[in-house]
Design a protein around this nucleic acid. Structure first.
Length: 269
DNA sequence: TCTCCTTTGAAGTGC
DNA sequence: GCACTTCAAAGGAGA
């Protein structure tokens, strides 16, 4: 099974090799707002890749009126949203994600909201559902740190690529019979680079709206709040994986790819 | 059970 | 202002 997974991913990557060489991170694309053509270095699609590539239809203008959709006063049915990859966003990628994305499911988690339903971005730090208070287990011995750890965590809003991954993951899994997320994410990363500016713009716009909404819902929240809540691998290991190289004698990573300037279309205001 | 892997982008930190 | 770090999602693999 694992072999199949590896072979599948390998075949796909061989047909759509990294722009900057095997094992390397693709070179950052020029800022999209500066490029009128697909970024330099983006390889032409092979027939195989074309098979996997499923360009989005020309995006319809984002319907801002979606914001006005009445908020549910009862527990929202999250099934559609958590089965997002099986349908909702895939079918209505240009309008629905605003309302169906986990962190955008309004009507819950808003302080003082009558529904008092936890917002989907709010999860226990453990990542598991909150359980009723257990008197038998809770003692004074429970450390303050542990209590802190069990406080609900407000997640970061998803960026454009994360929104894209969420929408396309199921499709890649179905097409490639892959299940391993690391391999799937590699494929999605290459697909992302192969998207047109317009297609990417759609996701940048969704991400921008999500950030705005997140700020409105949680005015005092900072990404720093979640720092240290995940145990991270060693820095050196992470750097080697993200730069494709080891630290030099100066302790730096000379080939660190610069982050392309974000593309912030002003089409919807 | 927990962490890593793997991707991009946003945001935080440190100098 | 730049370079670097962390965290968002996902689920299999391995310790």
């Amino acid at each position: 099974m694992y072999k199949e997974t590896v072979y599948s991913a390998f075949n796909l990557l061989m047909h759509y090799p990294p722009a900057s060489g095997a094992g390397q991170h693709p070179q950052p694309q020029p800022p999209l707002h500066k490029a009128s053509q697909p970024a330099h270095g983006v390889p032409q699609l092979s027939p195989l890749y074309e098979h996997f590539s499923s360009p989005h239809p020309t995006p319809a203008p984002v319907d801002i009126s979606q914001k006005q959709v009445p908020r549910p006063l009862q527990t929202p049915d999250l099934s559609g949203f958590y089965s997002l990859t099986s349908g909702s966003m895939g079918q209505l990628p240009h309008t629905v994600s605003w309302f169906t994305h986990p962190s955008l499911m309004l009507g819950s988690g808003v302080p003082g909201h009558p529904a008092a339903i936890p917002h989907p971005t709010i999860v226990p730090a453990s990542g598991k559902e909150l359980q009723p208070y257990d008197r038998n287990l809770k003692t004074q011995a429970e450390s303050k740190a542990e209590k802190e750890a069990k406080k609900p965590t407000i997640k970061k809003p998803l960026n454009a690529f994360m929104l894209y991954m969420k929408e396309m993951r199921a499709k890649v899994i179905a097409e490639c019979t892959l299940k391993e997320s690391a391999a799937i994410n590699q494929i999605l990363g290459r697909r992302w680079h192969a998207l047109s500016r317009e297609e990417q713009a759609k996701y940048y716009e969704l991400a921008r709206k999500e950030r705005q909404l997140h700020m409105q819902l949680y005015p005092g929240w900072s990404a720093r709040d979640n720092y240290g809540k995940k145990k991270r691998r060693s820095r050196e290991k992470h750097q080697e994986s993200t730069t494709g190289g080891k630290r030099n004698a100066f302790g730096t990573y000379p080939e660190k790819a610069a982050t392309p300037a974000p593309f912030l279309p002003m089409t919807v205001l």
